[in-house]
Design a protein around this nucleic acid. Structure first.
Length: 778
DNA sequence: CGGAGCGGGATTTTT
DNA sequence: TCCCGCTCCG
């Protein structure tokens, strides 16, 4: 594969190009015309609007292969930026299958953050850092903020560190330095101390020789702005720039891209951005869909390519997804189509509560399994991670193998973070946050008192804690016992540090963990988790072997907060909708389509209509993950922080086209059978179509200023909403004052009646709103 | 300094 | 419900 050989002399370019053209490269075969345009339009800015399942990644990776095959650029002259590690990994793998070894040389393929870190390490001094700077994670960040709040005498009850971290994040996402923070926002935290705190925080980071995630981008921006020569280097280096998931970029990333692509005059930038405005689901993290909507203005003369032919899903699924997303207003608008079969209609099933939901889905999966479907091709996509638990519990019970994706991550486990803190102390003596973490773990008798002494000294002299410790153990200020312990610890750290260049990092890690007493600590521990933690530590040491040195391992840990999963037996995947982006499965279960959960209440509260639309895009992402079967569920009761809450079906259910949906009764003699109660008695006559209890409609219509009960003019008259509205009766069989019995809440008295919705004062559970179909006269 | 016990608060998504 | 952090006591 000499055409892809990065070490081939430059002159090979032409020959390779001619040869490639003569051969009609295999990699172009099977691309549709639009995909080919995305691949072959190499000169000037290109925006590829790629709908779900339209072969976006294929176009992107083929484009890379094409650039290399034509000799237009070598692997290391292509900058390919993704948003997530997962996407980066996938792109690398797929380029590799296309070009073989060549992909290995793609040293500039990675997430914005990883690439920024790489650039920053090369020029750290120019922005006041040392090349071995630490990348703080969210946890470190919070602890640091807590310290600052304390130092500033700010009540951290009233002004929680978390809240400030969120503001910091949003400022950084928008590319704002402490001085640029809008006055209003700066003052709204801690009585006007917001901007000051931001400034102090940044100062503190410099002392710690550390950056947070946001800084990776901001400091790179600063580097480029203040050192045009450095920027010019990168301009010369990157002949082609590709950006995946462009709809997810935030302001800082946008500015970053602008700077880095400015090497050529407007209209000539070889910048190719791929994205789908309908899949923008990271607004809460500062992503600006506007970036993609504005592309043509930002890069005049850009070629726009639309990928609309869907290769993933069957007709009904696609139709359901398209109809759902058509309810959004803020979109460029694409029309996905497929030549494939209609397939099975997506199903909609209502269940009594979240436990039944897990039970029914578990049984359904077993059923598929019996029919020979692979568990690997089945996924359960939830809105919020707490939903996963019920599935886990159920699946453990019935012995259905599952895998949680994006759950508590390996590197976030306490023991792993402790171990890494030790290594960070060894690698980077100024890393106070790591030092604080391990100074008394295992217990060495070095508590708050000792730490305060070190902090005081450190603050006075402006040195890191380890250095303060070094000074203090020479004085009489400390009691003999802590003094000796501290001395021993500092001695150990020094000794380990001395081995950093000679001892392989995994051996060093093992040594550190043993000699520090950390491993021993868990051996002594009799709690049930201890054994697992020891296993994890072993796994950590083993994982370290694969890295060239300690520094690159630590870099990996901070940027790729996930462990490679061991593939083994077939499993059902359980993950969040966000985590599922970019994936596909034969069968997708979409539980929890209930108001407040999906759309999530917080998204509605905080972002209003924009939040709702983002939630709807998330629903769209969920449905479009399915190749052959999409199964939507809603429960009428859900346990939220231990309390059972009655819920109402999601408004997104009303956004589904009834012609493409099958409403399905929960199989297997569901619980209400046992109760002998028809759950939707208001719709008794239409029992099989109980999907949409009327009062959620009523509420929606009330909000829209229309009369409940009347089939309202809706933009989509064919929706299930419309059908059910037409059928639902507004008269209730209940009256205020009637005694009723509810399966979950027990006996109570009706306080008010509103369509099919009752307000009931339960004897035990207090006042609740419930569907009348869930209560019996009692 | 360390452990136990209690109260309060929180729960979306992630680089 | 659970988890975290704080306080109080030994």
């Amino acid at each position: 594969m000499s055409a892809f050989d990065d070490h081939a002399p430059r002159q090979d370019g032409l020959a390779a190009r001619a040869a490639a053209l003569a051969r009609r490269p295999r990699y172009l075969e099977g691309l549709n015309p639009e995909q080919r345009a995305a691949v072959e339009t190499l000169d000037g800015p290109v925006l590829v609007l790629a709908g779900a399942g339209t072969g976006k990644t294929r176009a992107l990776t083929t484009r890379i292969a094409h650039i290399m095959a034509l000799g237009k650029a070598r692997a290391f002259e292509i900058l390919a930026v993704t948003f997530t590690n997962k996407a980066a990994r996938e792109m690398r793998e797929r380029v590799e299958t296309l070009v073989g070894e060549g992909a290995q040389a793609m040293q500039w393929l990675g997430t914005f953050h990883a690439i920024s870190a790489k650039i920053l390490r090369r020029h750290a001094e120019l922005v006041g850092l040392k090349p071995n700077f630490t990348i703080l994670d969210a946890d470190d960040q919070i602890r640091l903020i807590k310290q600052l709040l304390q130092a500033e005498n700010i009540d951290d009850k009233r002004w929680p560190a978390r809240a400030f971290a969120m503001r910091l994040d949003s400022w950084k996402n928008r590319g704002l330095s402490p001085k640029q923070v809008p006055a209003g926002e700066a003052e709204s935290f801690a009585n006007g101390k917001g901007a000051t705190l931001y400034g102090l925080y940044q100062e503190r980071l410099k002392v710690l020789n550390a950056v947070d995630f946001g800084d990776l981008l901001l400091e790179t921006l600063r580097l480029f702005r203040e050192h045009p020569d450095v920027l010019a280097d990168y301009h010369a280096r990157f002949k082609y720039i590709l950006v995946d998931e462009y709809q997810d970029t935030n302001v800082a990333q946008y500015l970053w891209l602008r700077l880095i692509s400015q090497g050529r005059e407007p209209g000539k930038q070889n910048l190719c951005c791929v994205g789908d405005d309908d899949q923008s689901v990271y607004g809460w993290r500062g992503a600006e869909v506007e970036n993609i909507l504005r592309f043509e203005q930002d890069f005049p003369g850009a070629t726009i390519v639309r990928l609309e032919r869907n290769y993933r899903s069957t007709g009904h699924i696609l139709a359901a997804a398209a109809h759902l997303i058509s309810h959004n207003e803020d979109r460029l608008g694409k029309t996905l189509f497929t030549d494939g079969e209609e397939g099975e209609k997506p199903t909609l099933t209502g269940v009594w509560d979240s436990q039944e939901e897990a039970r029914v889905i578990g049984e359904d999966i077993e059923q598929l399994q019996r029919h020979g479907h692979s568990l690997e091709e089945i996924a359960i996509l939830v809105r919020a991670s707490f939903q996963m638990r019920e599935f886990e519990e159920r699946f453990v019970e019935i012995g259905l193998p599952y895998r949680i994706i994006g759950g508590p991550r390996f590197y976030e486990r306490m023991e792993i973070r402790d171990a890494i803190a030790y290594l960070r102390c060894v690698a980077q003596p100024a890393d106070d946050l790591a030092f604080e973490r391990i100074v008394n773990t295992p217990k060495r008798g070095l508590g708050d008192a000792t730490l305060n002494i070190l902090h005081d000294y450190g603050r006075k002299t402006g040195v890191p804690l380890t250095q303060a410790a070094r000074a203090m153990i020479e004085t009489e200020e400390m009691k003999p016992r802590p003094r000796a312990a501290l001395k021993a610890l500092i001695g150990d750290l020094d000794r380990w540090r001395g081995l950093i260049d000679t001892k392989p990092q995994h051996e060093l890690a093992e040594m550190v963990l043993d000699e520090s007493g950390y491993t021993e600590m868990w051996r002594q521990d009799k709690t049930p988790e201890a054994a697992g933690r020891l296993d994890n530590l072993k796994e950590l040491v083993r994982a370290m072997e694969e890295f060239p040195d300690l520094a690159s391992f630590l870099e990996h840990v901070s940027l790729v907060m996930e462990a490679e999963e061991a593939s083994g037996a077939e499993r059902v995947s359980i993950m969040t909708l966000h985590g599922a982006k970019g994936l596909e499965f034969e069968t997708v279960y979409l539980p929890g389509w209930e108001e407040g959960l999906f759309p999530h209440q917080r998204a509605l509260d905080e972002q209003g209509r924009a939040g709702l639309e983002e939630e709807r895009r998330l629903a769209y992402v969920g449905v479009t993950r399915a190749k052959r079967r999409a199964k939507i569920f809603f429960a009428s009761n859900r346990r939220i922080r231990g309390l059972w809450q009655p819920t109402t079906p999601s408004r997104f259910i009303d956004n589904l086209p009834s012609a493409h949906i099958d409403v399905v009764e929960a199989p297997g003699g569901s619980q209400y059978g046992a109760y002998g109660v028809s759950r939707f008695s208001a719709f008794d006559a239409y029992d099989s179509d109980y999907a949409s209890p009327g009062w959620s409609r009523a509420r929606a219509h009330a909000a829209a200023g229309t009369t409940p009960g009347k089939p309202t003019r809706s933009r989509q008259p064919t929706t299930i909403e419309g059908e059910v509205m037409a059928r639902a009766s507004t008269t209730s069989r209940f009256r205020a004052g009637t005694r009723v019995f509810h399966q979950k809440f027990g006996p109570g008295t009706i306080a008010a009646v509103d369509g099919g919705k009752l307000t009931v004062d339960f004897d035990k559970a207090g006042r609740k709103m419930v569907l009348e179909s869930f209560v019996q006269s009692g």
